[in-house]
Design a protein around this nucleic acid. Sequence first.
DNA 1: ACCGAGGTATCGG
DNA 2: CCGATACCTCGGT
Length: 113
Amino acid sequence: MQSDREPTAFERQVYAATSQIPKGRVSTYAWIGRAIGCGSARAIGQALRRNPYAPTVPCHRVIRSDGTLGGFNGQTEGEELERKVRLLTEEGVRLVAGRLADPQQRWPLASDA
DNA sequence: ACCGAGGTATCGG
DNA sequence: CCGATACCTCGGT
């Protein structure tokens, strides 16, 4: 890997927010982005992709705002994605055709806003 | 300067 | 009305 240094403050925020996602619940890149004060979901994905805390940070609980899974382990498709679907399904997340079945499964971090 | 695991908008069926 | 495709913008490295 090209990055063996410590995570930046931004990555820390992303990992923290992602790690706060309860089981059976999912969050979105944009959601976390606004939670840490970011306006770009791509930046979140980048941080998650680097994710040095793979098992610590449930990046598989982070999906797109469309309800799509987005990507996993740097892959937007493939067996890695299949693994993500499997994990979410076993955690209690209703997925249909590899996508979020119920929008209520999203983590209501800011259900008010 | 370049890359990225998204988002939004538009067009077609 | 729903689905698929294309383009854009923001942020980080």
